[in-house]
């Protein structure tokens, strides 16, 4: 019976040492995670010969305004993707997209209005000379109202298509912004 009580005792010591270890290991608070590669804001800048218009759509969806374009006009459109989760340290994700031009694609889809777009001189091209449409030229049609759906596609399976399905890949950004042509 001696060895029995010895083993019991050691088992009890063991569990208590484990208990105390377990309890002390997590005293401090877990670190706050600032999400990386988060895109909180899509910013569109429209420039024509006589005006500049900036439209923002952020993650909360609170400040989406409508885009006002003049009929039958040409606009220089730049898109930016920002991480504004930390107001003191706003990150421009667009540079990451441009760096990985082969793995990204910007795509615009219109409904209710007639707008066409093409690449502009200032646009970014990937290794195969495909335009990313970070910078594009928009051609507005007749007056009307509808919306534009802005996409950022990651690792598309094709770099040229007329609809979203043709690009394949994963959608990183998909926002709808009301668009009026006056």
């Amino acid at each position: 019976m001696d060895s029995l009580s010895y083993i019991k005792l050691s088992a009890i010591i063991l569990i208590f040492s484990v208990l105390s270890n377990g309890c002390s290991s997590d005293e401090d608070q877990p670190e706050l995670i600032q999400e990386e590669e988060l895109i909180t804001t899509v910013k569109l800048t429209f420039k024509s010969s006589d005006e500049t218009q900036i439209i923002q759509w952020n993650a909360e969806g609170t400040n989406s305004e409508s885009i006002q374009l003049k009929a039958n006009s040409i606009y220089d459109v730049a898109v930016e993707f920002l991480d504004e989760s930390d107001p003191v340290d706003i990150e421009d994700i667009t540079t990451e997209v441009i760096e990985e031009a082969n793995d990204h694609q910007v795509f615009y889809e219109f409904s209710g209005v007639n707008v066409t777009y093409e690449t502009s001189d200032t646009d970014t091209l990937d290794d195969n000379q495909n335009p990313l449409y970070i910078n594009s030229l928009w051609n507005s049609g007749e007056p009307g109202s509808g919306k534009v759906r802005v996409y950022l596609i990651h690792e598309p399976t094709s770099k040229s298509s007329n609809d979203r399905n043709g690009f394949g890949g994963e959608t990183d950004i998909q926002v709808d912004i009301p668009l009026n042509i006056n």
């Binding site: 484990v18 377990g22 290991s25 997590d26 995670i33 600032q34 590669e37």
Partner: peptide, 15 residues
Amino acid sequence: GLIQDNFSNPKTGIK
């Protein structure tokens, strides 16, 4: 008795 300690590494950069 069972004690479990789960640690979720914050280095992921994802919630």
